[in-house]
Design a protein around this nucleic acid. Structure first.
Lengths: 232, 232
DNA sequence: CGAGATTTTGAGAGCCTTCAAAGGCGGTGG
DNA sequence: CCACCGCCTTTGAAGGCTCTCAAAATCTCG
């Protein structure tokens, strides 16, 4: 997005000094646990979620390499959300104090973190609007497009076909639907010729129609970062 | 939350140099408008919302004095959300460049803005979980408690009775329900003895039960800001 | 006092859930 | 290599929560 200075580069690399591997399904942080570390996700896919009293789960966000995660640790003594690895993954943990130094020494990085926050906020509000005001079909279509968009940011080579890497139950927990109904919606979207499915892989066969069905906006497009301060 | 240094105080006051009054119902920023200003809300209540293709509206968040609003201006050329005054209000506009200076000169203020972002994020994720996984009654109860909590932060004197300041249609747009169903839920909550209503004012008659019905968590409680850098 | 906005109430329909069970797939151990 | 097992996907039927449509009652403000 932005060219970093050597100093900034070094500061970020310091955050990534240590590494911790995670197995698929492993929990990095549990809701209401005491917490003091933040992480950078290096490899793999993760998710953040909350559990409700009745045992149901809401997935808040999917996490990809490069994301700074558990940032709420900066604010809350107890974690407000659970972090789980969806695939084998690698994270770099660092302390809140490191964050403090980073913000003091590198104002532009602080600003970039702010920018990142706002992108994430936009993604959350899109999901919010989808849950509040769109049909089940639209929500499932939106998840498909969101995942495709994020996977493609990491792997420019990937075309119209990609591995979703989510169970229908997980799609349901992200969209506020039951797994059963997710299945019916996927089937319907397939029957309408918008996607094809084969063994966990999805091909977009009519992207235009899918985007229309989903009300999709790519929040990583259309950025304008001209206002950032000078780097150090 | 935190004692500011004189330098920080002065920097914040600079942001609040100008003032712009808004009439009830006025639009400060329209979705997809080109935008370059941020604002501090000084007086009154506002909301941020998005419109969907089918004409339905999702209210994302209610805004109160002290909130920094239109922060997404820092990132997007075109506003992702609409900002509307719910009561007569007063805002202080400032430019993105002022934000840039602030972050460079006052790292701790940058950190505090980060903190503010995270609180807002938590509020959004709570709403997300509510929309995805809770009943209409729970969502309406949650809105009542959220508004009470925020109103009380401004006016410590207010007790169990407060002015909601929202139409049932607005409650519906925030909770993803129709105004008709909001009405039925309010009535039901009232019949069950959790609230009393009279001319736009609400009294919590059984707060415990209401909080339980709503799955309520106060995101402005339980903060831990010990990690912040030194002020300048 | 009149007009428009908001609240309230009723009836019927539809989207999505719940409950249940069968089929498919990959992985593991013998 | 095969049988078994657990997880995931798929399918059907019935029910309920919430929506839509409609209209009356009440409130607010000029």
């Amino acid at each position: 997005m932005v060219a970093l200075t050597p100093g900034e580069q070094a500061a970020l690399e310091q955050l990534e000094e240590r590494e911790r591997p995670l197995r698929r399904g492993a929990t990095l942080q549990r809701e209401n646990d005491r917490c003091s570390e933040l992480f950078i996700l290096r490899k793999g896919m993760m998710m953040s979620s909350v559990l409700l009293d009745d045992g149901s789960r809401q997935i808040l966000r999917f996490l990809f390499p490069g994301d700074m995660i558990a940032v709420s640790t900066l604010v809350y003594r107890e974690a407000p959300e659970t972090l789980t690895a969806l695939t084998d993954a690698m994270v770099s943990p660092f302390e809140r104090s490191a964050m403090s130094r980073l913000v003091s020494d590198h104002p532009r990085l602080a600003a970039l973190i702010l920018v990142h926050n706002q992108i994430e906020r936009a993604a959350l509000t899109d999901r919010l609007a989808a849950l509040g005001r769109t049909s089940a079909k639209a929500r499932v279509a939106a998840i498909l497009l969101e995942m495709r968009s994020r996977i493609r940011m990491l792997d420019k080579g990937s075309g119209k076909t990609f591995t979703l890497g989510l169970t229908q139950e997980e799609i349901g927990d992200a969209t506020g639907l039951t797994a059963v109904h997710v299945n019916r919606m996927l089937r319907q979207i397939e029957e309408e010729g918008m996607i094809a499915r084969e063994g966990g892989r999805v091909t977009l066969t009519n992207e235009r129609a899918l985007a229309k069905a989903a009300n999709f906006v790519d929040r990583y497009a259309g950025l304008d970062l001209g206002w950032l301060p000078e780097g150090r």
